[in-house]
Design a protein around this nucleic acid. Structure first.
Lengths: 292, 292
DNA sequence: GTAGGGGCACAACCGCAGCTTATGGGTGCA
DNA sequence: TGCACCCATAAGCTGCGGTTGTGCCCCTAC
């Protein structure tokens, strides 16, 4: 598995136009940057930078690599931001409680954005189901919460920040993959699926939306396991659109439209009514809203 | 910048249920896995794995970290797949030519999927504009091409594999960000934008779609630079939806709907008519189609 | 014309991270 | 009771990546 350090350095050099400036920005010597970029090029067998006595610019291949590297580095930054929020230091100025879907797929990116806007803020995250999130906010164990629940207690103010959609996904070989107009809700209700264990938020939301479900052909504990089973052709699965977006882009899974039933749900920020949002929490909610 | 190695290992352990099996899968000793996971936990200050004499399972925090890590590792794999295709070995069995948008945002993921399906295939990639891609395929310098052009030469067979949409993006503070119903085409045509240099495919497509454009307020060479300028509030920008998806999710940019004009374009696979797709190229096109 | 500054590369040295093998302690199953 | 499987620890080694110091090149400014 690749170490992203050299790629981060490459992006820095590309952005600043010279190895020396990139070195200064990273707090290392110019020689170290030169050596690392050089060894990266050697490993790839491709020249990435056009050196000149006036600085460096990306070669065409370098620009392509830099674009790919940007995605990977951004994902790694989201990972780091999430982890930083898990450390649960006492001194954290902003305590966030979030449901699993939000915590897994949205919060890390929001935290990256928050950090660029508000570098000093330490954030602590606790993740659980939507009712527990509301309880944490009510009990002042969290400054702001993010939930999937359709309704929230009266003592909380709420604002919809994003919309999530339950998506039926199948393997590209599955017959449903070729149906351009998808399936109807009755068909979905009578087809055995690969599902989360009973009690998961996604599963209960689906049951509520279409009335009843056939007995699952397989119950698995993790989203990844379900995706693998669906991609392997075991049976269709129903997952959050946030969870399956990369797989749809990669072509390992295909989305099947469902007619006659609304499968989206709102994701809301909640906070204590009468205790208005303070600086960092307000920023976070605004960032989250921007993503809707 | 984080080294993804330990996270990759963590995912392996989580998937296989034991450190020993993960070690075997990675071709290292069990002691190395134990030490690395331990040092990862120490660095994060969080226990990720529940050890038992019968194996290991993820703690709740571990599951969250594993989910984030999965995204980062997948992005890194896409990066590696792209790089492998750039090495341009002579022995490459599948030669792909792709326009910049496809090469940057779609191909790496397709290549990851292709590799899992067809591990032995070596792929070489060349990226350029759409007309050059068609020329490469015609001259048999590439087995299959991916283009954005609305029409292709008669000697080529084509199949639409995905749809791309030009998206107007602004900073979250921009007045347009609050217009839920967006703007109309005339407003877009008369507003100075941050744009790619003249001649870029995205820019010429936009000009064709809305007739004329105001003189740009700023011309920049890279997509990233344009995004930064737009996010900084310089002016609105128009970019491929593929390019801005992560920024929309992070909330650093906000999409503005445009009424009265169709801004999508088709991305097509093309190949020599009469020289039907062979095994790996057929697989690749099928994977790409699955993403539509 | 020439001096200076900024830019990249090379050489020599060093410290530490991570791997290996070997071993020990623990649990469950036949 | 022994075996199989699991994880943790110890001790030794290798090599990657960092540092400083130096050289060369090109452009610019005086």
């Amino acid at each position: 598995m690749a170490d992203l350090g050299p790629y981060d350095l490459l992006l820095s050099v590309a952005e600043r136009g010279s190895m020396g400036r990139a070195a200064a920005a990273h707090g290392v010597s110019q020689a170290a940057v030169s050596a690392r970029v050089r060894s990266l090029e050697a490993a790839l067998g491709v020249t990435l930078l056009e050196r000149s006595p006036r600085g460096t610019t990306l070669t065409p291949a370098g620009a392509l690599v830099a674009g790919w590297a940007r995605s990977a580095v951004d994902a790694a930054e989201a990972l780091e931001a999430g982890i930083a929020s898990l450390r649960a230091e006492q001194s954290s100025r902003l305590r966030v409680a979030a449901s699993l879907t939000v915590a897994e797929y949205l919060l890390p990116r929001w935290l990256v954005a928050l950090r660029t806007r508000n570098p000093g803020t330490a954030v602590s995250l606790s993740s659980q189901n939507s009712t527990d999130v509301a309880a944490d906010v009510l009990a002042d164990r969290a400054d702001v919460g993010f939930v999937e629940a359709p309704t929230v207690p009266d003592e909380l103010d709420a604002q919809v920040v994003a919309r999530d959609q339950l998506t039926v996904v199948v393997s590209p070989d599955h017959p449903w993959a070729r149906r351009r107009h998808g399936i109807d809700a009755a068909r979905l209700a009578t087809t055995p699926l690969v599902a989360r264990e009973h009690g998961s938020g996604t599963r209960s939301h689906l049951e509520r939306a279409i009335g009843s479900l056939a007995e699952p052909v397989l119950e698995l504990a993790s989203t990844t396991a379900i995706k693998n089973a669906a991609a392997g052709g075991v049976a269709p699965a129903v997952l959050s659109s946030l969870a399956v977006a990369p797989d749809l882009a990669a072509g390992t899974l295909v989305a099947v439209p469902v007619r006659g039933v609304a499968l989206h749900r709102a994701l809301s920020a909640v906070w204590h009514r009468g205790r208005p949002l303070t600086g960092p929490s307000e920023d976070l909610v605004r960032i989250a809203t921007g993503s809707g």
